[in-house]
Amino acid sequence: MNTIWHKLADLDRRWLFALTFLAIGIPLLTGVVLPQKVSPMVVNVFDAIDTLPEGSSILMPLDFDPSAEGELQPMANAFVRHCAEKKHKIYFMTIWPQGVGMIQRQIALLKKEYPDYQYGKDYVNLGYRPGYEGVIKLITSDLPKLYDSDQQGTPVSQIPMMQGIDNIQQLPLIVNVSSGDPGLKQWVQYAATPYDSIEIVGGTTGVQASTLYPYIPNQMIGMLAGIKPAAEYEKVMFEKYPEIEERPESNLAHIFMTSQEVAHFMLIAIIILGNLVMWKTSGQGGRS
């Protein structure tokens, strides 16, 4: 009874771990890029930013931390590049304490790729405020009550682009990138649902996505869920603004997507193998 299937049934899971490690690591080293096919939802999200008149004000809450960087950094980069191409004013903020570092990365990107963008005039870093979804509730009616100064401590009265901004209902679009609660769900629940004037698009992790689909399209225009839509977003953006494609690392989602590709097929193979093992050794199948 000691067939290969029985041996496989007792397979040390560390072999699977090693396989996973290689499936992700090797494609990343090669840097191969695969073509993407753009889905309609991605186009909706792109259009939400693209059809706004130049110089529109965009609230960009980045509610994620370094652990989700692998998934969300590429789309945050794409959103910021796209907004900067359209010369939109960007209001960065976060309700995650670790989100501050994520905002700093985006500001570094703006400084590097869009040296003309001026702090206070074209973008502002409002920073972190504690209070979970309470922050969202508050700023839908009164922004300066909580944000009387920016991350550096500069009073908002001295920041040109904060003049006349009383609440976030005045900003035509929220572009949220989030990896959990409080995050996109709370932005939909407390900002976009009660106020018709607030429109929202989001970028989120694949995990969060399944609970957020029911909000589309009534409560949210659309969202990018994970790396694949982020890569598609890059593609749409490159088509409209080809100069972005020239910059280093602007196709980060494309690069990451190759590892995803290999990992997905590896996982499918593992699942099929697991089932083959079950059938071949049936009688003792099921969970152990």
């Binding site: 080293l29 998934e71 694949g206 694949k228 990451f256």
Partner: peptide, 26 residues
């Protein structure tokens, strides 16, 4: 079926986390 979709959508995120760490190391 709902859970199957949720599982598959999540798988994608989980692998990207590892990609993020690998990217750091490399």
């Amino acid at each position: 079926i709902t859970f199957g979709v949720g599982f598959a959508l999540t798988v994608m995120s989980r692998y990207s986390l590892l990609i993020g760490r690998m990217n750091f190391l490399l």
